[in-house]
Design a protein around this nucleic acid. Structure first.
Lengths: 347, 347
DNA sequence: GTGAAAGCGCTAACAG
DNA sequence: CTGTTAGCGCTTTCAC
């Protein structure tokens, strides 16, 4: 590891000059020729600043904290973290990923993170819901990921649940489905609210009536299959919008037992949570792809823009979220969803 | 953040004394009464050392790096990382988790990690295979996770693939299955080698003959279902050991189409990769639980023991890996697998 | 036993 | 324009 001191010695200037130049604060303060020399030997020696030493002075570490509760249990958490990591890396930051879920106390973790001098926090839930941000985070820049701050203090990045459901249902309408069911989630959460509303509105916008009997909310378990089965027998749906791919599997199973072909007798759109199912088991499924990677990416950009007071709006997302695919595409296709950014009420 | 200086002033001693005491290096160097006073005010002020400042002097950061390639695509990566994090937290370390898979160059990431002064590296693959550890890691403590160093330079933690297959097959034998098939993985990897060998040996130890026709190796795709279907028609297996739960699904599907009941007409043991499937879709499946969490945990302990030259053998794993469950358990049960630790050939 | 002093690598006032 | 100086919070040698 070469240091500024070495560069200073080699170039025959003082450390301060080197510091000035290498931090690009030499405009009209250091002679251009000297600056050039400094930069030259720096490059020659392969100089890279020591972030720890710098932090000690500036009390800025260029380290971000990603605090999550359900990192282990949720398969797609990886996507969010990956996006966050890529963004951090691109912006010159490092990421401490900690889970507050396990046997380690959340407050302790946050305290440790603070001691390490992180510049800001991402606070993530693993499916869109209201969150209580710990008050210990109050004086730091914070961005919520896949969650909404119940008190409206912090900005957040989350999927547009309403639009997900609206687009998915619209897709089924456009595919000429007459009896469109919704297999939802009986757990109380933001996502479920938005989804149900989007489903209802898409139907109404198409001049149809919302019918409660076509809706069933279930969990991931045995009774769920029975409930979906009942819906099939009672309502004979020809199109189903599913809360996620675990729910889609019940539909898939019910259809198989009735010798109905997915994509022909009954069209299914499912929101893709696990990926396993959509990719491996049911190629006939139309999936709404949740942009987890992008969520992590955007959240990080947002956080950095808050920290540095920098405008990051020119930053291109590596994978752009597209709108609905064209309708002449075959029904098994992917629907991309967009993200929304909620601003903090009081910053 | 209270500093040593403040403690020194409050107690009326010098900073060096405080440092000595608070690092427990005061045996016979500082008067006991003074030491007590120092500790007292430290506690009163809620003193916590600044790890950055300490690192600058000691060039030890108590930060570990977890470098992985497939963090995003593999659902169960979270378990490994969670285990690593919990262990790190318990041992007083932080964890930088980076993926070398994305758009960021692995060498660049490693260089950055080094600049931040990490004390050691975990290098993880997401299913047991040979790995080429980058030479830039050569002079650091390194532990491989779910992989084996091709050159034998570094120790590793990995599942005992042979025993997984042996135990699973034995279980089917004990369940009175006569025609036990193996649905394996056609990708070349360590895990597959060990699994096939364990399957074969369990059969032979039971006095049965290994029969190639009962083995089919597939990928995760359409032709896979066909291949398993052919095996069913041709061999009429009454027991199947599956490489992972994605493969188990093909078996499940084939059975359903032939009106065979899993757990009655045909017993299935699958290694659980995704969890989704086993938990949500097929409660009849006997699963071999891969101890991902434990792998991460152990790897971290191993790494720390290398860094600190500390003996961590007394450290209890939070979830212990059990042996086979008793045979009077109903066939849908969980089989726990053990981990093995490979030592480096030359350290 | 205890404290003064130096220094890890870097930044930022302030002289000159 | 450039160098000197001080100091971020901590550890560590070395006098006293």
């Amino acid at each position: 590891m070469t240091t500024m001191k070495e560069i200073a010695e080699q170039t025959g200037v003082s450390v301060s000059t080197v510091s000035l130049v290498l931090n690009d604060r030499d405009a009209g303060r250091v002679k251009a020729s000297i600056a050039a020399q400094v930069r030259d030997t720096a490059r020659k020696l392969g100089y890279r600043p020591n972030p720890l030493a710098r932090s000690l002075r500036t009390s800025r570490t260029r380290i971000l904290a990603f605090v999550s509760e359900e990192i282990a249990t949720t398969p797609y958490a990886g996507g969010i973290i990956l996006g966050a990591q890529d963004a951090a890396s691109t912006l010159g930051y490092m990421l401490f990923t900690v889970n507050a879920d396990g046997r380690v106390d959340e407050e302790t973790e946050i305290a440790t993170l603070k001691r390490y001098g992180v510049d800001g926090f991402m606070y993530a839930k693993m499916s869109n819901r209201y969150a209580n941000v710990p008050s210990s985070l109050g004086d730091y820049p914070v961005v919520l990921v896949d969650a909404t701050d119940r008190e409206g203090r912090f900005p957040s990045i989350e999927p547009d649940e309403f639009r997900i459901a609206y687009d998915a249902t619209k897709r089924l309408i456009d595919a000429q489905c007459e009896r469109i069911a919704y297999v939802g989630c009986s757990e109380l959460m933001l996502a479920q609210d938005g989804r149900l509303e989007g489903y209802r509105r898409a139907l109404e916008d198409a001049g149809r009536k919302f019918d409660e009997r076509l809706v069933v909310n279930v969990l991931n378990n045995g009774p769920a299959l029975q409930a979906v089965s009942d819906l099939f027998d009672r309502e004979k749906p020809d199109g189903v919008f599913c809360f996620n791919d675990a729910r889609a599997w019940y539909v898939y199973e019910c259809a198989a037992r009735r010798e109905l072909t997915i994509g022909k007798d009954v069209s299914v759109v499912g929101v893709d949570n696990h990926r396993v199912f959509a990719e491996t088991f049911s190629p006939q499924l139309t999936t709404v792809e949740l942009p987890h990677y992008e969520m992590g990416y955007w959240a990080t950009c947002k956080l950095v823009s808050m920290i540095e007071d920098r405008d990051l709006s020119d930053l291109q997302l590596p994978h752009t979220t597209a709108a609905l695919p064209p309708l002449d595409a075959p029904i098994p296709a992917k629907i991309h969803c967009t993200l929304i950014e909620k601003e903090s009420v009081r910053r």
